[in-house]
Structures are given as structure tokens and as C-alpha cells.
Design a binder for these strands. Structure first.
Length: 403
DNA sequence: GCGATCAGCT
DNA sequence: CACAGCTGATCGC
């Protein structure tokens, strides 16, 4: 969980992912994604009052994050103060102090973070240097090297500071199976069960948070079975998700929730109440997505573990593994790095011992040593076609995982 | 009645 | 098991 205070040293007049305390005086706000631990203070009366007396204060986020946020009535008061910025489109923002009139220009670029729908990293460029705030992210090895906007010409930009998602910054999380491996393992389990009869159904025991949508979309796409969910109005302008979820309980894949859904399952009942169909009892298995990790030497393993007669755990991670984190940071090679998260097992000093040697200022044996900055490997060609009128755009998933 | 915080529990 | 929350109790306004 994020413990980032909201502000970066280089640009203290902006606040990112924190909206309480000192952040109440920010000249501009940024939201990396729609998870509650990055939204502290976002609906507090103090901030609401400040908005009412200002025409200038804005919240910047991706189009998908804006859509998800404004679907909740609790955040409707932000409606006229949100600016959706397209991903991978550098934008000039003028930061003006409303009382003194003092101004500062900054350029911000949203980069896809692969954490949940709409999730982005923020790249800030201005008079105090270039700063990358990663928010929460999962990027595979080599993905930073393929991001054109992290580069200037063929070389990686000179980045002063990275504010990093250090959730799995511990060698014990060395390897987490890739998103593709996890997806295909889950797909084959769901396929084999749902093919038995139409009364064989799967319950995906997902936590209540955005991030599982690409799983739903890919399962639905491959098997032609829509996924039952409690609510889908937040996706009304995201056709590529909306098409694959349903509120009709008569489907073989469920990701619905109930306050006591584990009890439902033990009673051979789905959280939505379904227990039989046409007088035939349902045969239900549960699959619980959870992070599985492996030390350095493990080569290959099963991403599905059977935990009971009809219960399974399946590998799933919203965050980069230790080796992915090291690849990311050692490619960027910033001067400074600041952890956004204290990993479960370790303290801040332990994390810094791992991260500092990957930064540019580090000199082994105090010997000045030059290591060249990275170079752009390959520009990822994206499908830039329109996704339809009224749609929030093509950036719901990172390009690689688009349906 | 609302929000903030914490224990307990997925 | 570790992802991000929910619910309910308590306290202060």
C-alpha cells in the first residue's frame, strides 16, 4: 500500500495520489489510478471547499481514470475540475499560485503502467529536472526500453528522480510468472471445467478493486462466455470491457461478490445466489487470483495450485516482480530513487541498499565509473484506430494486452 | 450524522 | 499469504 506523501522534491507545488494535509494547497493534482490507497483526501470536505472557490485547480488523470472516478456519485463534485490527458501525449501545464500569481510551467506525459484500467505513470519535465512518478505498475522486462517518451532521440532521458512502486522490492519476489503465463493457465482451467456441461461454472474470487478486467475480457474472448459482475455502469463508455461482462446470472463464469461469499461457496451457492438452473444443480469451482512468487533458481512452475476439492489459487500480480523492478530502474538509471511503498518484510534502508546501486550516482569502490544511459530498443507500434463514438479511448489496457 | 482510525477478515 | 479493500466498533465534531 502506498505511503507516498503526495509531493516530489523537484516540483512541490503539485500533489500526486494524495489529497490531505499539505496537499490541500497544491496548484495542481494528479491521480495515477483509481485505487483507494491513492485517493486519500480526494473527497474530504476541506478539498471540496477549496474547489468551490477556485476556477484554476485541476485534477489531471487518464481518460479511463476520469470515467471510473466520476461513475461514483461521491466524486461527482470533481466533474468540472478534472482534465483527462491522453496517454503518451506530452502536455504543457501552467502552475499558477492563485494568491501571488507566481507561475511555473511544467510538461507532463502519462505513460501506461499496466496495473489496472486507466493506470499511468507521470513523467514531469521542467526547470527542476525530469521526474518519473511510477504510481503502481507492472511492466515486463524490457518494457521501459520500448517506451519512446522515456527517450530523447535514441537515448533514455536524463531522469533526476524516480518515485518507485517498491511493493515487491525484495529478492524473495525475484520471479512472478508473466501475465501471459498466468492468463493461459487460468484459461485452460476454466475451459476444461466449463466444457464438461453447461451446469459446470467457475467463480473467480477476485478482491473488490479494478485490475481483473483484462482477465475477464480474455476469458470471455477465448471461451465465448461473458463474466457475471455486480456492477458494470463504470464501463459504459469502454466497449472493449463492457461487451465481456454481464449482470445476467445465467453464465458459466462469475466474478460477482457478496459480503459472505466464502460461505455462499461452501454452501454450493454463487455470491449472486445462483445454485441451480433448470432444476439442475450447479457444479462450482472457485479460482482465487493471488500473487505467487519464486526465488531466483526456480525455472518453471504451475501457475495454478489446487487447494481443495473444488478450490484453486491462480497466479496473478498487479505489481512488478523484484527482477522486473531491477530491470526497470537499471535501465532508467536516475540520479535519485524514492520508494513509494514499504515492502511487507523489509524497512526503508534495506530497500535503498537494493535500489541505490542501480542509480547513476552510485560508484562501486568509490571509483568513478561511467555506465552509458540506455538506448531505445524498439518503438511499440500501436493500433491507433478509434474505438467508437463516446468511448474513452484505446488505453484501457496496456497495448500488449488489448483484446 | 459524518469522518477518521483501527481491529478483524478476507 | 503478501495485490486492495470491506465491515463494524469507537471516538470526536
Amino acid at each position: 500500500m502506498s505511503r507516498f506523501g503526495g509531493r516530489v522534491r523537484e516540483y512541490p507545488s503539485v500533489s500526486i495520489d494524495r489529497f490531505d494535509r499539505d496537499n490541500l494547497r497544491a496548484r495542481a493534482y494528479f491521480l495515477s489510478h483509481c485505487h483507494k490507497d491513492h485517493m486519500k483526501g480526494l473527497r474530504a470536505p476541506a478539498l471540496k471547499r477549496r474547489l468551490e472557490g477556485s476556477l484554476k485547480v485541476k485534477l489531471y488523470c487518464s481518460p479511463v481514470t476520469k470515467e471510473l472516478l466520476l461513475t461514483s456519485w461521491k466524486y461527482k463534485f470533481w466533474e468540472n475540475h478534472i482534465v483527462a490527458l491522453e496517454v503518451e501525449t506530452p502536455t504543457q501545464i501552467s502552475l499558477e499560485d492563485e494568491t501571488s500569481g507566481e507561475k511555473e510551467d511544467i510538461e507532463v506525459t502519462l505513460l501506461p503502467a499496466g496495473h489496472c484500467p486507466g493506470s499511468v505513470m507521470f513523467l514531469f519535465e521542467g526547470a527542476n529536472g525530469t521526474v518519473l512518478y511510477t504510481g503502481d505498475f507492472r511492466l515486463a522486462k524490457g518494457e521501459a526500453a520500448r517506451m519512446e517518451l522515456l527517450h530523447s532521440g535514441t537515448r533514455v532521458k536524463d531522469i533526476q528522480s524516480v518515485y518507485l512502486d517498491t511493493t515487491f522490492c525484495d529478492p524473495k519476489f525475484y520471479h512472478i510468472p508473466s501475465r501471459e503465463e498466468c492468463l493461459s493457465g487460468i484459461l485452460e482451467l476454466v475451459r476444461s471445467w466449463t466444457s464438461l456441461t453447461r451446469y459446470h461454472v467457475v467463480w473467480l474470487n477476485c478482491k473488490a478493486a479494478y485490475g481483473y478486467e483484462y482477465l475477464f475480457v480474455n476469458l470471455s474472448e477465448e471461451l465465448g462466455i461473458k463474466v457475471h459482475v455486480n456492477k458494470l455502469d463504470m464501463f459504459r463508455n469502454m466497449p472493449e470491457i463492457l461487451y465481456h461482462v454481464t449482470t445476467d446470472r445465467h453464465t458459466q463464469i462469475h466474478a460477482c461478490r457478496h459480503p459472505r461469499d466464502d460461505d455462499c461457496f461452501r454452501g454450493n451457492r454463487l455470491p449472486c445466489g445462483m445454485t441451480c438452473q433448470n432444476g439442475n444443480p450447479l457444479h462450482i469451482i472457485s479460482i482465487k487470483p493471488s500473487t505467487m512468487w519464486f526465488g531466483e533458481r526456480i525455472k518453471k512452475t504451475n501457475v495454478i495450485v489446487r487447494t481443495g476439492e473444488s478450490t484453486y489459487r491462480a497466479c496473478f500480480s498487479f505489481h512488478s516482480s523484484y527482477s522486473e523492478l531491477k530491470d526497470f530502474l537499471s535501465y532508467i538509471r536516475p540520479v535519485n530513487v524514492y520508494p513509494n511503498v514499504l515492502p511487507v518484510g523489509g524497512g526503508e534502508d534495506k530497500v535503498m541498499e537494493i535500489l541505490k546501486p542501480l542509480c547513476r550516482s552510485y560508484r562501486r569502490n568509490m571509483e568513478p565509473r561511467y555506465k552509458p544511459l540506455g538506448t531505445l530498443k524498439r518503438v511499440h507500434k500501436r493500433d491507433l484506430s478509434d474505438t467508437g463514438k463516446g468511448s474513452v479511448g484505446a488505453s484501457v489496457f496496456s497495448p500488449k494486452f488489448s483484446p
